[in-house]
Amino acid sequence: MFKDESSYSVNPAAEPSADWAAEAMVVANNAPVLARVERYMARLSLTDVQRLWIRGQVVAQLRGVKMEGEALYARAFACMHMALATLTDGDELDARLDLSLDLPVGEAHDGRSSRWLQQRMQPAMARTNMASRPLNRSWGAAFLRRFQSLLNRRAIGASRRALPGEA
């Protein structure tokens, strides 16, 4: 479940500061990386506030980083996931899941949406045995059984008595 948006701020400081300038430098130097982060976030249904806050976190984490190529993309991606996880006080996978399924706020799943989803997918097991029973398929035995049943029926018919109350 995502944090209430009033619990964090995405507004920059009122006066330009050294931090603000440094962030601008990071944005300028890492434009492709941040563009990919933005595209990734666009695939999730984040609110503007959430998106800006995550972007701010990524920019802050990239400040002073001396990396390039895949390492830089990986760093930015990891930062974004960390920020996503922070927003939900949990795991980035759970955060993405909450966004994907639009899970209702207040649902009793202890913040572990993935476990909750697994339990909904398959309820707790209550194992039972199911094994086939032996089936005698011998024709000889079948004829013998039939013969015996005919004999028994004759015997029953011969000694049949009306029981009290029987019509």
Binding site: Y40, R43, L44, R96, L97, S100, S114, Q118, M121
Partner: peptide, 12 residues
């Protein structure tokens, strides 16, 4: 690739 589809499938 898709973060939503990936989340649903991975969680399961």
């Amino acid at each position: 690739v898709d973060p939503r589809f990936n989340a649903i499938h991975t969680a399961l």
